[in-house]
Amino acid sequence: MLSRKSVLRVVSKLLIPPILLFALYVQFHGDFGPGGGFQAGVIFASAFILYSLIFGAHAARLAAPSWLTRWMLSCGVLLYAGVGVATMLMGGDFLDYSVLASNPLLGQHIGISLIEFGVGTTVAGAMITIFLIFDGSILNRRDE
């Protein structure tokens, strides 16, 4: 099967790293242009989807084992909510980033970057999980 897919394989090998990088670029440039955590997460996951399509769900599971995606999923949410709790502990309102640094603007910047990162992590984890579960059951079905 694989040898017949050489065109796809070569081209995806070429494309996956740039896609990943593009995802991270979108993640960190949400401030300046369109994009942000959610979109980045989706693009990041789509690199994995491409990988899984070409190299099979098993290989993809090796690259992104289920414990990893589970941690990504959970930690993103925890990071987001954690930022909220932290701002609360530091004397502000929930999710009031201004208290994160002495300068409110800087605080906002840090807060937004952090929560966008949380969003990105969770979304990437979620999308990878969902897709790999679908793809994995297709594989299982074929084995049966």
Binding site: R70, W71, L73, S74, C75, V77, L78, A81, G82, G84, V85, M88, L89, G91, D93, F94
Partner: peptide
């Protein structure tokens, strides 16, 4: 400070507990 934030805590506590449960 925390007392004033009770309303949000009531919602956030189960929210944060869910991912922890997934990790446990």
């Amino acid at each position: 400070m925390i007392v004033g934030n009770f309303p949000i805590l009531a919602v956030i506590t189960p929210l944060m507990a869910a991912p922890i449960a997934v990790l446990l």
